[in-house]
């Protein structure tokens, strides 16, 4: 029980997170279509500080940073969500297979997990995206292919504990094949854990995508994400345009904290005893 937020604090965290997320997602959905995607260049309005006309100021090409950040966030979240889901599906498949089959297939699959985990994720991600520069699919793959291993571990340990349950004995006695035990008993049992892992992975994936784009290895410039915006704004800070870094960063932090907050509340409710394992 130690360290777990309780009662009023849980509610405050949940409602604070939900409120922030709804606000940010609504803004990201509504604002860019209404005001153009923030990609129109205005050379007469370069690096304007925040004001009524431009709440977040403008960037080095005179683009409105408010609209541009929200459009960027939209792309960041989309890429992160797809990566998280792909990664979770892959990890769950490997975890269920390893746990259910056991023996040498288990050993082989878990060594693959160790191999992926042995290399720093960002480094492995960089290798993957540099093979396919500027491809959105490559960015998603580079995140998905480096993060399935954790999910596979969690799911496998869950299946290992299920395997010893008497109801699996009963299923075998009732003529169920290995495959049937897998999809009737193991898969449904790990779905809540896997769904939770996916949500917990989203903020992490946002940061990964941001890091790749900031390094110039991520999304192509016409699909600017928060990472691209931060990368572009980096040099302008030296010219005194602090808002180019501050506002997109705040937006990123607020969004990822909100998703984490919701996931944390969900985790405490669904799987209280697995708290530490799921801190991705």
């Amino acid at each position: 029980m130690r360290g777990r937020a309780t009662g009023a604090r849980v509610r405050a965290r949940l409602w604070g997170s939900l409120g922030t997320l709804v606000l940010v997602v609504l803004a990201a959905l509504i604002v860019p279509p209404l005001f153009g995607s923030g990609s129109t260049v205005h050379y007469e309005a370069i690096r304007l500080p925040p004001g009524w006309a431009h709440p977040f100021g403008t960037d080095s090409s005179g683009r409105d940073l408010f609209v541009r950040s929200l459009a960027g966030l939209r792309i960041s979240l989309l890429v992160a969500a797809i990566s998280a889901v792909v990664s979770t599906v892959l990890g769950s498949a490997v975890g269920v297979a390893a746990g259910a089959l056991g023996g040498w297939s288990d050993r082989l699959l878990m060594r693959a997990v160790d191999a992926v985990n042995a290399v720093p994720h960002l480094l492995l991600g960089i290798v993957i995206v540099s093979l396919y520069r500027g491809s959105v699919v490559a960015v998603m793959l580079s995140i998905a292919l480096t993060h399935w291993a954790t999910v596979a571990r969690i799911v496998r340990s869950e299946v290992l504990s299920l395997r010893e349950r008497p109801y699996i004995d009963a299923a075998i006695s009732g003529g169920a094949s290995r495959l049937r035990v897998l999809y009737r008993h193991f898969l449904p049992a790990v779905v809540p854990q896997a769904a939770l892992s996916a949500v917990l992975l989203i903020p992490h994936a946002v940061w990964h995508e941001t890091a790749l784009s900031f390094l110039g290895l991520g999304l192509p410039p016409h699909m600017a994400s928060i990472g691209n915006i931060l990368g572009d704004g980096r040099s302008a800070v030296l010219l005194g345009a602090w808002w180019l870094i501050l506002f997109p960063s705040l937006l990123l932090v607020a969004t990822t904290l909100a998703v984490s907050g919701i996931a944390a509340t969900w985790r405490d409710r669904v799987v209280p005893r697995r708290r530490s394992e799921l801190s991705l």
């Binding site: 349950r165 008497p166 109801y167 004995d169 009963a170 299923a171 006695s173 009732g174 003529g175 169920a176 094949s177 049937r180 009737r184 008993h185 449904p188 049992a189």
Partner: peptide, 28 residues
């Protein structure tokens, strides 16, 4: 056929009793 001492751990908690009884038939 097998019947175990403790019924609770011997059934999948996600199944309805109908599914519990029908499962061997469906599995075959």
């Amino acid at each position: 056929g097998m019947v175990f001492q403790q019924p609770r751990p011997a059934v999948d908690p996600r199944f309805t009793l109908h599914e519990v009884v029908a499962e061997p038939l469906r599995a075959t």
